[in-house]
Amino acid sequence: MRTVSTDLIRDAVAELCIEANHFLSEDMREALQAAEESEVSPLGKRVLGQLQENLRIAGEEMIPICQDTGMAVVFAEIGQDVHLEGELLETAVNEGVRKGYTEGFLRKSVVGDPLERTNTGDNTPCVLHTRIVPGDHVRLTVAPKGFGSENMSRIFMLKPADGEEGVKEAVLQAVRDAGPNACPPMVVGVGIGGTFEKCALLAKQALLRPADSHAEDPRYRAMEEELLRRINQSGIGPGGLGGRVTAMTVHILTYPTHIAGLPVAVNICCHVHRHASKEQ
């Protein structure tokens, strides 16, 4: 048994909110560079060059990469042998988000009630996903999610008879409908299986896989490659202004499902695919 103070968790969340909004992970920076090199459309190439310049300015001058610094999605993996000491975990994580968004000059984009719509003023509450894992450490991941791309995400409750073709068509449809709105080149997270909510969470978790990773199962790895190729045949291109790089990567996660169902969730992320992690 190891004791971890929730004060440490609060401070780590605050740091991660600031880090994620100013610096992309190495794999994402490489993916953007590769996109610029392979794009054939002159305007598309110009847009991708501006995105590189934007990343440089963001890091050097501490200006958020995007003004939509997102709703904070926090994943907490808690070792089964950890004893959390202090405040309730959710309170500590929200305090961390409040601290990070206030001290880090990040935009406050959260409204308290979805219909009444008054801004909460500190970007809380976050969306917290917890999981109990083996070990005696706490691993935190902050993934601020902008809503330009979140709004273009979809869930499809397909029929088993729709099969693999139906799944592919659903993903392609979501990407085509998203077009320029989701700030391409995109990262596409796909969840297949589970229940309604499990499928949506799988799609979100799929986004967090390293950009250059592949599905372990050869069938799904092949599907990822085919979907990426077909998405990039759409012509949407960087900024939706035409080109061959519409998505940088497609990630699929699957889960067993019911005899009567074939849920598919498509969580689209823009090119500002932000996530930062830390272990306590």
Partner: peptide, 13 residues
């Protein structure tokens, strides 16, 4: 007009 989405640091200049 479209400005480049996700280039808020660059555009702030």
């Amino acid at each position: 007009f479209a400005a480049v989405g996700g280039a808020g640091a660059l555009l702030s200049h």
